[in-house]
Amino acid sequence: MGVFDPLLELLRGLGTTFKMALDKPVTYQYPEEKRPVRPRFRGRHVLKRYENGLEKCIGCSLCAAACPADAIFVEASENTDEKRFSPGERYASTYEINMLRCIYCGFCEDACPTEAIVLGDNYELSFYDRRSAIYTKEMLLEPVPSVEMTTPRKVEPGVFTRSVPEMKDPQD
């Protein structure tokens, strides 16, 4: 082993350092800059609405049944045309997800007969106490684009009679 060998090794190492210094950095400047998520990313749940603003969720509780962590609690009530939340007879009057329990497996999404619950892109979940880890229906529900689309609302009688729409095979 020569006398300069350690130096050579040092230079070789520094070479790598200099090379990488010129490369584009992989670090995201979170929270100013957010990393885009993958198409199948499973983030915080969102309760979807139809285009007319009615809630897709019909309070069937199948998500709660599918949930391996027992994180979802649903209670249903009856819709009327005077006070309609969702199409059909039934809507979720209480919908809660305990985000501390949730393991983001997406089984709820699979179980949902109306594609109402979707695991979205939001991964920014942090809480100061356990109570605020429970997301209520108001927190989960998608915002409405205009005021007249809010639920509950009065609708024409006899139009929204069916709860489960005709479904296509799920796409990505």
Partner: peptide, 11 residues
């Protein structure tokens, strides 16, 4: 049969 098992009390 309407197959509305998700909202049916018998489901």
């Amino acid at each position: 049969h309407p197959l509305d098992c998700p909202i049916c009390d018998k489901g």
